[in-house]
Write a protein that binds this DNA or RNA. Structure first.
Lengths: 161, 161
DNA sequence: TTATAAAGTTAGCTTTGGCTAAGTATTGTT
DNA sequence: AACAATACTTAGCCAAAGCTAACTTTATAA
């Protein structure tokens, strides 16, 4: 039972599924590991997506606004911004607005698109917008490339698989 | 730049009708809070569901097997079982097998059903089983009652909402 | 029955992501 | 220019969930 070290590659938005749908310990463990890995990038994804939104809306992203939108305290934002900065996703000088690096912008764009696809898919299924937005927030981080493609194609012609 | 003014104007009287998918700070924060809450129950749900599986398969659930299936170390399982015990979901004496309380059984059953609904839904969308199982593992914890119902009804008649 | 292997636990470390309290910086008002 | 309000940071706390190393208990096999 060798334990894997974290090894977070920030570009791993798309989870890889193993072949075959067996229920052996191995593949089940891989699935759980994959979910744990996804959780590690969620914070980053939520922040960069929100920062991008704020820049579009207000021309800048202030920590106080990030805190308010995420429903967390300002010190939490400060701490997480330091992490995002460490990981090369944002640019942030003390007491200044927050900006996205190129990598951060790229990540934000991917997240934005994925979010829209998931929301539109749920709405196409007949789910009302407020709930679609709510569920998408949790679901979007766990959708594989294949599933995302299926969501998108369904939304475009909501009749057949 | 301009540090934003509080904007106290009409908050308490007017803005109560935030139905629909608005992007106000309030509702967005609620969604994020909800996702954070869901994360807190994921560990419990995964464990309880797996323990139920193991009991069906082997007549008992041994920590070593839980560790293997989840892909975590044995000490991690020991620690998490203590939390589940604290929360009234499992019964566990040192060096013994793990059992579910009535509450644990109920939770496991809900999770099992939900898991099947999500997997079957994804398969009905045309996603192959291994990927469906993979994505379901992450998605299932974030699906609202309404969305789950929509998934189920779609699976039964995969034509239209 | 005793030695060894496997299972399980304990202790102690790490990172994440939350919080409050208190201090510092910036901005806005007078 | 001084002061008040707001924004931001720092310090220090907490719990969750992971790990390794080392120890104890249980099970197996000679």
């Amino acid at each position: 039972m060798t334990q894997k070290t974290p090894e977070i590659s920030s570009s791993s938005l798309v989870s890889q599924a193993s072949e075959g749908a067996d229920s052996t310990a191995g593949s089940q463990a891989e699935r759980f590991e994959s979910v744990r890995r996804a959780h590690q990038s969620e914070m980053a994804e939520d922040y960069v997506e929100l920062i991008a939104e704020l820049i579009v809306e207000h021309g800048e992203a202030r920590p106080v606004e990030i805190a308010e939108r995420l429903g967390v305290s300002q010190p939490t934002v400060t701490k997480n911004l330091a992490r995002l900065k460490r990981d090369g996703l944002v640019i942030h000088a003390p007491y200044r607005s927050v900006f996205l690096t190129d990598e951060g912008k790229a990540l934000a764009e991917i997240c934005r698109k994925r979010h829209r696809i998931v929301v539109n898919f749920l709405k196409a299924l007949g789910i009302k917008e407020s709930i679609a937005e709510h569920d998408a927030e949790g679901i979007e981080h766990h959708v594989s490339k294949e599933t995302l493609a299926a969501f998108e194609s369904f939304t475009q012609s909501p009749s057949k698989p």
